[in-house]
């Protein structure tokens, strides 16, 4: 492997993603796990940038780091007093988890093997056109309009549901 900037960046981000993802599942402290997850999400965002999917990368950071991870941390800090947890894993769970993990791995490997564009992808230094406009066209003016609207309605329902549940205590 020759040293090029792209290789350097790619392996850097890959190491960051995989390493911190390993930490997320091995570390005992939940808050540490959550912060390792932040590094993982950043690594994935970096890989998106590397693939010149800039819009996707920024969305990844806004939604996952700025939104979901903050909520996870809120939940952890407000609910759990004990942060160091010994999680007992029974044999049945281990087996089930193993099967699910194996199935997921097979699925992902199949997808990777069967993606034709993947094999033809070479780095010839050309800059791909920005993705923002295309994403907008596809979502708001193209084939993905209906799924997009369905997801919006789903999120709206979740939002109203959350508001309803959290207001219940006030009425009592």
């Amino acid at each position: 492997m020759d040293f090029t900037l792209t290789n350097f960046i790619f392996y850097g981000f890959a190491l960051m993603t995989v390493g911190s993802a390993l930490l997320v599942v091995t570390v005992r402290n939940i808050v540490h796990a959550a912060f390792s997850l932040m590094v993982t999400l950043f690594g994935v965002a970096g890989l998106y940038v590397f693939l010149q999917a800039d819009f996707l990368a920024a969305t990844q950071v806004i939604v996952y780091v700025g939104g979901i991870l903050v909520l996870i941390l809120f939940g952890v800090m407000m609910t759990s007093g004990r942060l160091e947890m010994r999680i007992h894993i029974e044999r049945g769970q281990l087996l089930l988890g193993g099967v699910v993990a194996l199935a997921l791995l097979t699925l992902l490997l199949t997808v990777i093997a069967n993606t034709p564009a993947w094999k033809n992808l070479t780095d010839d230094g050309t800059e791909l056109p920005p993705t923002t406009e295309k994403i907008g066209e596809l979502i708001l003016n193209g084939p993905f309009l209906l799924p997009f609207e369905v997801v919006s309605v789903l999120l709206l329902v979740a939002l109203i549901g959350a508001a309803l549940i959290s207001r219940k205590e006030v009425r009592d």
Partner: peptide, 11 residues
């Protein structure tokens, strides 16, 4: 990008 990065400050 600016919005994304500044949302990380919360972390």
């Amino acid at each position: 990008y600016i919005m994304a990065i500044s949302s990380v400050i919360v972390m």
